[in-house]
Design a protein around this nucleic acid. Structure first.
Lengths: 216, 216
DNA sequence: CACTAAAACGGAGGTGCCTCCGTTTATTTA
DNA sequence: TAAATAAACGGAGGCACCTCCGTTTTAGTG
């Protein structure tokens, strides 16, 4: 059953670097998806994120599959339970938030970047609220998820704040965790229809406070 | 539209005391159920408790209704969501546990009462584990439920211990919350098949420790 | 006791969940 | 490029959830 090595001087695919990459993957393999599978999976997450935001966690999975243009079976192969899907959507949201921090920092003055990011943070919280019950369960059950995400988010904010302070765009005597704490108010605010506007104003106010007495 | 007061000297029903009772009820009215309704409700809780214990929280509600000899509609009228039913079953379990404490104290020597009660406590924990995910959610959502129940249970144990200590059946230098803490080990123990026996032995061991050095 | 209003019953039916498996598609090999 | 094979697709079917409303039962009244 062992393949005889005939003219194998050039291994068609899988050169050394790729071997290494594969070996690394094997440690905690998320598996290399086939091209179409990856496409469908991405599409599902995309649509699910939208659906959860609009209709809450109880959005119909069959509807999500339909809107993503795949069969319900495909959805279930990728995400055996609703929680799996929720978790992935949530992680994606966190990912996006952290990525946005880097991008904003690159494209804007430090204080503007911070403000824009905090505005985006409001959206993030909105998602988190939408997923509330499921997330609470997930976050107590799956402690990795909790430490991963909360660490990454607060880390992203910390660097934005430090950068803005270093650039003299905001006062230097503020602690990142204090700001995070202030933003916490958004989370616990009541669920009124004008919640979004209200939170937006809170962020602006907070920024004014941060800019007050800045060096430059 | 105002009824003229003709010969209303004796208001057939609703004498003064009942008025008062009704007024009191109105404060946080659980409403006076019609006889048949009460019967059905009791039956449902009874059956549900059994079903949850056997099949976990995901027991089929339709099956529960059937076994209770009522229609599914009746179940849903009494308990709009699965969580409502879970909560009631759980409260009933707590109730039973506390009631057992009084009863055992009446019918047995103080130390025996304590031991028997702790054995029953094992059953209670078993239920709690069965309902785990739902309960966790309920207990974080509905904080009243948490404080109510945990307070009552630890209170029941406290009085059993104090009685036993006062009667000289167990040593007097133990703190009730320490014993409660020791029992906590039951809860966090792994979910092996011999869990019940194991926990039973733990209780016995604990009792030996408590009896050691008792006055009488 | 007969009557009636109010309350409770119960199950048909519409919807979503999830599994299973025959069909289709991507990738590899010759 | 064609054939082979591994992987992914997708939807039919079966089950549970839950709502809605016509029917039945209870409790009060004359």
């Amino acid at each position: 059953m062992v393949q005889p090595p005939i003219l194998r001087s050039v291994e068609k695919k899988v050169p050394d670097q790729e071997m290494t990459a594969e070996a690394k993957r094997d440690a905690h393999a998320p598996k290399p998806l086939r091209a179409d599978a990856q496409r469908n999976r991405d599409r599902l997450v995309e649509v699910a994120a939208q659906a959860f935001a609009t209709d809450g966690v109880d959005a119909s999975l069959e509807e999500i599959a339909k809107r993503a243009g795949v069969g319900i079976g495909t959805l279930y192969r990728h995400f055996p339970t609703r929680e799996h899907l929720v978790e992935v959507v949530y992680r994606r949201e966190v990912e996006g938030l952290c990525h946005a921090a880097e991008e904003l920092a690159r494209e804007h003055p430090a204080d503007v970047a911070l403000e824009l990011w905090m505005q985006r943070f409001v959206d993030y919280i909105a998602t988190k609220r939408g997923l509330a019950t499921s997330l609470r369960l997930l976050l107590t059950t799956n402690s990795t998820l909790f430490s991963d995400t909360s660490g990454r988010v607060s880390g992203a904010m910390r660097s934005l704040i430090e950068a803005a302070a270093a650039a003299g765009k905001i006062r230097a005597d503020v602690d990142a965790s204090d700001v995070m704490h202030a933003l916490g108010g958004i989370y616990s605010a009541p669920n009124t229809p004008d919640w979004r506007e209200r939170s937006g104003r809170l962020v602006k106010l907070l920024m004014d406070g941060l800019r007050f007495g800045a060096r430059g």
